[in-house]
């Protein structure tokens, strides 16, 4: 019974979040476009499925993943500190970096918006980009990013230097990258941090920042999401570079005389 109540609450919340989008769509459809959309019935039922699916997904996450993920983040970040009398050394938290990388990777693979973009990319590129390859590349980027972000919180070094260095690396990679992967790579920064990743990663940052002496959760707790959104850009650009090298080697040698 409690479960059904939770489900109804979640459905209401999803509906409320989606209401502005529906409003914009309906207003423009009725007032501006004034043409019948093709396959309207299928679109509406698909939209309803999306809403039901998202509500179920969120209820399930709240029931299964978030409580345990958050407790785990708190326990892992707190476990060393009780015995620490000496100055905090970054090597005290190796387990946390490992957890950050693993959970960053795992939550990104389960991230629905990333699946959407990957499916679109596979169909738009005519199969040249595989949805799985893209998702794995993004997940590896998030894993490295979140792990490095935890290192930053532990060492208390300024966030902006990391991010600005990342920007410089992205700029350099852009020079070498193929034009057709760039838009997708830049997009993949934003799609990774969503429903599944943000709550778990935020709990991790908050746990670290409140357990390490001298760190303030309000100031140092932020920044993990920023890492998780910048690193996938680099990893997707790298993935495309490796991918094109491999395809070139497979399609040996280039035709002469064309």
């Amino acid at each position: 019974m409690q479960f059904l109540v939770d489900l109804a609450v979640s459905f209401g919340a999803t509906l409320r979040d989606v209401a502005p989008i529906i409003l914009v769509l309906v207003v423009f459809q009725v007032l501006v476009l004034r043409q019948k959309l093709p396959r309207l019935k299928q679109i509406v039922s698909g939209f309803v499925l999306v809403l039901i699916g998202l509500s179920l997904f969120l209820v399930g996450l709240n029931e299964a993943l978030f409580p345990i993920g958050e407790t785990m983040a708190a326990q892992l970040t707190a476990s060393n500190i009780a015995t620490t009398v000496h100055e905090v050394v970054w090597t005290d938290y190796l387990v946390v970096y490992a957890f950050a990388a693993a959970i960053g990777f795992a939550t990104t693979i389960a991230e629905p918006p990333l699946m959407a973009v990957a499916l679109k990319a596979e169909s738009a590129s005519g199969g040249a980009i595989s949805a799985w390859g893209l998702r794995l590349a993004v997940a590896v980027g998030v894993a490295i990013g979140v792990s490095l972000g935890c290192f930053r919180i532990v060492t208390g070094t300024p966030l902006q230097w990391y991010i600005i260095v990342c920007y410089v690396i992205v700029m350099v990679q852009t020079v070498f990258a193929s034009r057709s992967i760039m838009p997708l790579a830049y997009d993949s920064g934003g799609v990774t941090t969503s429903t599944v990743t943000v709550p778990v990663v935020a709990a991790l940052g908050l746990g670290l920042a409140s357990n390490i002496p001298g760190r303030s959760p309000l100031i140092d707790g932020f920044g993990l999401i920023a890492f998780a959104s910048v690193f996938p850009i680099m990893s997707v650009l790298t993935y495309s570079l490796i991918n094109s090298k491999l395809t070139k080697r497979k399609n040996t040698p280039p035709q002469v005389g064309q």
Binding site: Q42, V50, G53, E63, P112
Partner: peptide
């Protein structure tokens, strides 16, 4: 729930969104 929700979401995505 997460499993079912994800499946419905992706199906709705391709047929609706």
């Amino acid at each position: 729930c997460v499993l079912l929700g994800l499946a419905l979401f992706i199906h709705g995505l391709e047929s609706g969104l």
